[in-house]
Amino acid sequence: MLLLECPYCGVKAEETELTAGGEAHLKRFGPGSSGEEFEAYMFARKNPKGVHFERWRHAYGCGKWFLAARCTATLEVFGTYPAQTTEPPADLVEKIKAKRPDWKGTK
């Protein structure tokens, strides 16, 4: 029963108000992509023990999708941010690095 703050409406939303959408920052591969690219897009998901970026929708609230960075081991939430981006905000990355020095980053 996670608590995640919706970056759009500011509500500290409980997991029952949210729907999960899996890994964030996937790049879509459509027609013309190689078999490997499409396989990676469709099926190869990260499953880290530690820092992870995820898609969540405030389904029973404002209806907006947002992204969350959290630790899958301790469930600590580092931050949430709007979905209209291809990578996490720089200040959030810095915050995570400060808390998890061993983290290798998103790249």
Partner: peptide, 13 residues
Amino acid sequence: HAWMEDWLQCEWW
């Protein structure tokens, strides 16, 4: 409807 919103908000925003 959720599927439409997913693509509009997260891919073709």
